[in-house]
Design a protein around this nucleic acid. Sequence first.
DNA 1: TTGTAAGCGTTATCAC
DNA 2: GTGATAACGCTTACAA
Lengths: 339, 339
Amino acid sequence: MTVSRGSAPTMRQVGAQVGVSAMTVSRALHDDPRVAPRTRERILTAARELGYRRNELARSLRLGRPSGMLGLVVTNLANPFYSQLALGVENLAAAHGMRLVLSNTADDVDRERRIVHDLVSWRVDGIIVVPAGVDQSHLDLARLNDVPVVLAARPPVGIEADCVLLDDFGGARDATSDLLAAGHRRLAFLGPPAAWTSAERMRGFRAALGAANASLDESLVRCDQRDAEAAERVAAELLAMPAPPTAIFCANSRNAIGAFRAVRGMGTDTELSCFDDFELADVLRLTVVTYDPRAVGAEAARLLVGRIARIGHSAQARPQRTVLPTTVINYRQRAGARL
Amino acid sequence: MTVSRGSAPTMRQVGAQVGVSAMTVSRALHDDPRVAPRTRERILTAARELGYRRNELARSLRLGRPSGMLGLVVTNLANPFYSQLALGVENLAAAHGMRLVLSNTADDVDRERRIVHDLVSWRVDGIIVVPAGVDQSHLDLARLNDVPVVLAARPPVGIEADCVLLDDFGGARDATSDLLAAGHRRLAFLGPPAAWTSAERMRGFRAALGAANASLDESLVRCDQRDAEAAERVAAELLAMPAPPTAIFCANSRNAIGAFRAVRGMGTDTELSCFDDFELADVLRLTVVTYDPRAVGAEAARLLVGRIARIGHSAQARPQRTVLPTTVINYRQRAGARL
DNA sequence: TTGTAAGCGTTATCAC
DNA sequence: GTGATAACGCTTACAA
């Protein structure tokens, strides 16, 4: 087995090996029926021996788009939600023979802007973005080069773009309604700062209270906890109040875990409910809002692939907004020994 | 602001707008000092107005490598270990101005083979692989086109390649030693099937027993549980034996969570220890082996970038093997109220 | 200071 | 059946 040292062999080199032009090699590799069977055979053998691999960069350049690359820009890959979302995108991309170029912004809009620009420069066919902020102007600009963009998990602000969202509002509302139905009247809300999702969940929380004509003590609403430690401190504060809440709804699992620790520490019987299902939530006897993070990625990718297929066609469909459902699971009511 | 409809503008088009050749545009965009300041200014303005973006595909083709793309091939992105590893790679790649092309194999070696081939065809500068199996021949072939490969989390088998591993052996040994030091003499082992890491952890488990001259009842060794449900069933079996184990070491967190449920269900006081730290392990009062999954990715990327920089240089360094440390944390001994 | 020519590896087109 | 040519968008080398 003869193997070339140095960089990758070209069609010309494969051709030279067989005494044939690069063009014939190209045809043979494409199963063009006009190539003589014997020639074809010799070319394929030579290609294998040389370890030839088609240069997709050159091919893509010659052919123009599509390049077969999808960009995915997430805010925080360490968060299981986004890694599952990424997996959903990857699965669908792979099913279409496409590759995934993944970037992490760490919630930095400037970084997001640079990354998106870079992806367009690399001529990806489309981009899925979990936008880090409300300044999304660069995501509109991206469309100017006809690179379609789909937003995931957060809606477009000031731009037109497809998006795939979770039913943050409905999930939070339903979970809160469950707390009210269980007889709770003094509810607290814990959540992380700033994000759109968190605001939607709070809106759902308030909507449930409104629908039940229950009043809300605003001093029990705390939205500044990024991690479980902060949430534990704040929850402990609430529980130490003269009139502590009898139940707490948390906008995400980190806040719920912190709240759980606080409740355990104070020894109260405060009921807990939260957005995000997670391993061991049943052991903690929480009520959770569950959903399929992979479906968010898969649906975004499906939308994007559709857009890509329609590029150039006259009638571009209007921006779509897909909202994926959530389900409430009450692990407290469910059978199971106390911890 | 004039904006072109259709696909991306080229240097020629930008030049035409200003009455200048593509070459001058290229120079202006590279801050070549030979371009007249006024020309430069006009070119930059035109480029901005047209929404010009350099075609990196074409640039990369002309320049030859490097393309600035790193391939990362993992087995299961849904597993937090691999998504954190991916984050480590992404961080380091981004720090070097490189992009990450991510693929998931779902532990399918055929898929891995295709993906690696594809990545080489796209002329990525290097590839980090979490190999799905012991057939790694395709990872050796990849080197023939001078594309360096670094293995992560699992060692090379039958090929020469750099790799970055966790100290699976040492971590399991140390955690097991802790159980022995606490007086336990009847230990069980639970783990997932097949993977190299699991075998290493078992080796560590056995080594600790050997060092303490403790005997091992082979009927307490179970390595066929992929998820928490299976682990729970098997653990319940063990605990129902006439002479149940007094402590269980689990090769991963899924087995530990299953074992925890079984212990809780049976009401025994069995001590639990496992490889993998995870949220709430303290609440469950486990002993865990902790480590930094991001560091595995970052270190693999560092090695890879080093290899890439040395391509073409005569003296290629021999394959390196980096082993990252683990730490045992005993949440049972630590302060904290009982659950 | 700017332009022309050639070529990276591939493929569409036309010629033989 | 196969080859020569040109072109995709860019940049190095050489001219002007």
